[in-house]
Structures are given as structure tokens and as C-alpha cells.
Design a protein around this nucleic acid. Structure first.
Lengths: 207, 207
DNA sequence: ATATCAAGTGGAGAGGTCTCCGGTTAATAT
DNA sequence: ATATTAACCGGAGACCTCTCCACTTGATAT
């Protein structure tokens, strides 16, 4: 997660590396025994046999930990999306949006527990959200690119751009754990139905 | 908030009534001195000179407390919406939707602190969200009614209905504190711009 | 007036988050 | 081999949420 191999930076200390592994192992163990939502940072520290301070030094909250645990899968998701975009280069933006959303929903279905953990933000974390998570940021870029290609309102570039950014934001909050879970559990929609409805709502072009 | 005057129910005890008032006063004082987000239930109990248990007996969390504090304003909001709908009976659904959203955004701007407090749900509260807050539910109904009137996809009633429910849900999560705050603070949009973009996104009919 | 008892009260305590900081320790320079 | 030092460690502690329960008290019946 640190990715600080950049240049003249010291390598990670041996003991630190070991502790990181212990944390990851412990978290994984606890998460799939009890679900990410039910496990506290405290428990993780205990299970990993380290002090709370050590845990918090590496991960400021559970969200960061979950993100680290999903790193590889996130890379895979973006690979899938890239591949999809490649092979559907000539589809309409709406179609491509549908494809992307469908891929993401699949990802969500697979990693639901962890993803929910990522977004279950502790109130304090909202204070300085300078950089939204890379997951969010990257997805946002991709979505914006598609929305911009849609035959929008007139030809004012600036306006179209702003609107694309906004729509991408809205689509992402619609795909957030909170919203998605509500659609599944309260409204009783299946993943496929959700994809369908999102299409009708955000890119209803018929083609 | 209790509204239990229904039938053969005992009236609220005098001491309980007094404590409720102390709580409300204390909360109001603290909230507008430090902002709803920064005030803990503990502080409120202390300021009100009661035990934590007493506070929690009446309000299961800060959200409920905030809701109680806003009760009157919420009633006013719905009065406004009703009046608006009355006087614009003949406008297109899109226009009416815009009007409703505008009213709500105005409300949000006025009561932002408290509203954020309402939605800042403690993770535990999500466990049994059998009944979404009345605010949400009532707004949802109104929105659904408008979406249903829109020239939708064909004439299959059930499909149109499902889509209206979904769109109303999406519009409401777009209007949630989290999403709204991000548009203001991260994207730098003004309330008016947000209303505008919501229109373009959710009911772009040009009339 | 008094007895009754559901409603109400407060605080101890379990379990969490997160920070701080004095004491290590691994990597590096000498 | 030794000194240096930035990174790391762990746990005490501040503050929080929320529950439980022995005790008190106001409203009502008699």
C-alpha cells in the first residue's frame, strides 16, 4: 500500500514488514469469519498480537485496511474495464456505460463485505477528504470520459464537461455501498435489475 | 417526538417532560456553538445535567435528536412543497420536480448542520433500518408521484412504477448530506448549480 | 392519605476509536 | 565493530457509544 519505493527512500524495515503481514493475515481471518463490519480495529490488533498504536500507524482506519486487502482485485477490475472498453471501442457511450457499470456491479457482488468496509467511513475521516480514494477517482475519470462523448446539451464544451463530471459523481453515489445495499435489501432488486434501472436513469439513450 | 397521546396511554411524567426540555435546550446550545457534528451524546448529557442512560432512553442516537430538533421546520418544508404543488398544478412533471428539489435545497441550506447530524448514521443504526426516516419516506412518495407522471418507457405500468421508485431513490441519495456536501465543497458548485445539474441528470425534459 | 407500580433515572462498565510518547531496533554511515 | 538515528513499537489514556439494572418517583386507584 505504501508504494514508497520511489527513489532514495529507505526500504521498509524487516520487523515492520512482518507486522504488516500479521495485520493482513489477522484481518483476513477475522473478516471472513465475522464480516468486515463486525470486526473492530482493536480485535485486529489483538489477533495480530500487536499494539493498537502499531495498527493505527499503518492504517488510519478500517477503510484503508480494507482497501489494501482489495488492492489486487481492484487492479483486476480496472484491467477488465480497460479490456472491455478496448473490445467495445465502437459501441455507443450508453452501451459502454452499461458495460462498465455491469462490471463494477459484478465486482461489488464478489467483494461486497470488503467494499462495504471501505466505505463505512468513520465520521472523523470525512474531515480531510483531500484525495478521494483512488478507486473512486479512477472510476470517476472513466465515467466522465463516457458521459462527455454523449450527445449532450448543445456544444458548449465547458457546460458539457461540468455536466459529465456531475453525472459521473451521481452515478458513483448511486453505486455506493449504502445506496446499493438499500436497493438490494429494502427494494429487493437483483444485481441485474439494478444495472437495468441505473441505465434507465443515467443513460437512457435507446441504442 | 413521542406522539403517544393516542388513546389510553399514560401522559408523560412531569420529570420526564422537564428532562426532555433540558436535553433539547442543551443540544441546541451546543449544536450552534460547535456544530452538530462535533458534539457528542456525552456532552449533551453533561450539559443537560442528566445521566447518559437518560439521554439514550429518549433518543437512540444523535440522528433522532436532530430530527426532533427539526420537527417544526420539516413540517414547514412539506407545507411549502404542498403549496408549491398546488399553485403549479399544471406545470410539467419535470418543472415540478425542479421546484421541489429547489425547495429542498433551500431547506438544506438553512438547516445544513442539523440535517447532516440526522444522516451521520452510526454504523450500528444501519442494522435495523426497517423504517427509513419519515423525512425520507415522505419526500420519496412525492418524488415518485412526479416521476410516474413523466412520459416514461412505454405504457407498462409496473415497469414505469418500478422505474419511478428507483429514480426517486437515486435523486434522494444525490440530495443526501454526503453527496451534497461533496458537490459544494469538493466540486465547488453553488446551490443553484446543483439544482441545475440535478435537473439535467434526472429530468432533462426540455419544457 | 396511602399503596402500588410502570415509567423514569443515573452511573458503572464493556468495548470502541485514535493519539501520544518514552523506549526499542534495524538500516546506514563511519 | 560501533555509533547514529529515523522508523517502529506498544500500551496508557482520553473520550465515545450504548446497555444494563438497582433504585427512585410521579400518576393513579383505593
Amino acid at each position: 500500500m505504501d508504494e514508497r519505493q520511489e527513489a532514495g527512500a529507505r526500504p521498509e524495515r524487516r520487523d515492520a514488514a512482518e507486522n504488516r503481514q500479521r495485520i493482513l493475515d489477522a484481518a483476513l481471518r477475522l473478516f471472513d469469519r465475522h464480516g468486515a463490519g463486525q470486526v473492530s480495529m482493536n480485535q485486529i490488533a489483538t489477533e495480530a498480537q500487536i499494539g493498537p498504536g502499531t495498527l493505527y500507524r499503518r492504517y488510519r482506519n478500517k477503510s484503508e485496511l480494507c482497501l489494501d486487502l482489495m488492492k489486487d482485485n481492484i487492479v483486476l477490475l480496472f484491467d477488465d474495464i480497460e479490456a472491455y472498453l478496448e473490445t467495445h471501442r465502437d459501441d455507443s457511450p450508453s452501451l459502454r456505460l452499461r458495460g462498465i457499470v455491469s462490471l463494477f456491479v459484478g465486482f461489488r457482488e464478489k467483494k461486497n463485505r470488503l467494499l462495504a468496509g471501505v466505505e463505512e467511513s468513520p465520521p472523523a475521516a470525512r474531515a480531510r477528504p483531500k484525495a478521494l480514494s483512488p478507486l473512486y477517482g479512477q472510476l470517476h475519470e472513466i465515467l466522465v470520459a463516457q458521459f462527455e462523448k454523449m450527445p449532450g446539451s448543445g456544444q458548449d464544451m465547458a457546460v458539457a464537461q461540468a455536466s459529465a463530471v456531475f453525472k459521473a459523481d451521481m452515478l458513483l453515489v448511486a453505486l455506493s455501498s449504502e445506496s446499493y445495499a438499500a436497493q438490494r435489501d429494502v427494494r429487493g432488486l437483483s444485481p441485474e435489475e439494478i444495472v437495468e434501472q441505473l441505465g434507465l436513469t443515467f443513460y437512457p439513450e435507446r441504442n
